[in-house]
Design a protein around this nucleic acid. Structure first.
Lengths: 154, 154
DNA sequence: GTCCGTGCAAATCATTTGCACTTCT
DNA sequence: AGAAGTGCAAATGATTTGCACGGAC
């Protein structure tokens, strides 16, 4: 259930801005800005890697926001395009701020769950094929799985 | 929860062979061949598209195999490389025989759940990037989402 | 003042597990 | 015989929903 410990997970200062921008976008989308949502966005802004709701809940502090509230807010943010959701196996998903971040994917270690970010993306051909079939408004989810260096030599 | 009605779902005769080959592979992998598994493989062999366990259960006939048995067999087959599993949102997954089928992906309609198969696959660059990061034994899941022609103009 | 957002408890859903029993090989 | 497979019931785990209350605008 972890998703990216043991690799830099927190941030470098830019978090402040990213958070503000995200909240502004939320406001612009007609969503209300509450303390719970501020905390949620702050945590997401501080993390370079996508986080699971469970992790967000822990980092936010269970008393600052209920898990359910996080789910509902993340859902609202996703609809507003403020948050991007990554679907992984076993019904788990990770969330990250859409803002600023360039389009990218991740590698997930099958054994320890470590996640790394990849800038590369060449799914164009596949999307083109889908478009040729008449599908519109396309998007995709690309998940690379493997065994990370640490786990590999162990 | 549907996964590919309204498009050809059953097959063309080759199913017999595909099923036999799959069972042979299972046997070779040290797995036992039972009635439940024969039914399971027959259903998978007859379908060109990946199926959800629920659908398989229905097609097999609830009395011929318990849902749990299907899950366990599919798991065993997956480990043996006889079945390929596709992970989708909301914790659902679809299964299909690996045999014969060339590597490919699918487009899923966001609205009606219709699925179409795509031969194209150009995730090479992304896998290469992952490999460069030290990850080994790579595999990937690529899911294209969009709105199918039928839903689009409606 | 109105809605939207929130917490808590309870409900879902797909999948997994425990256990005693059956059946391949 | 003995391990592997099976069914049924019950457990999981992530996510969702119902409902009354509270706060943002």
């Amino acid at each position: 259930m972890p998703s990216g410990h043991h690799h830099g997970d927190d941030c470098c200062g830019g978090g402040q801005d990213r958070a503000e921008r995200a909240l502004a976008r939320a406001r612009a989308a007609g969503l209300r800005v509450t303390e719970a949502r501020r905390s949620l966005v702050r945590i997401l802004a501080q993390s370079k890697l996508p986080l699971a709701v469970e992790e967000i809940h822990r980092k936010v502090g269970r008393q600052r926001a209920d898990r359910v509230t996080l789910y509902r807010s993340l859902d609202a943010f996703e609809r507003a395009g403020i948050v991007q959701r990554h679907t992984l196996e076993k019904g788990r998903s990770l969330y990250a701020l859409t803002s600023g971040a360039h389009h990218h994917h991740h590698v997930v270690c099958r054994r320890c769950g470590a996640i790394e970010r990849l800038a590369e993306c060449d799914t164009a051909a596949v999307e083109a094929a889908a478009r040729a079939r008449g599908f519109a408004d396309l998007s995709h989810v690309l998940e690379i799985q493997g065994v990370c260096p640490r786990c590999a030599h162990g």
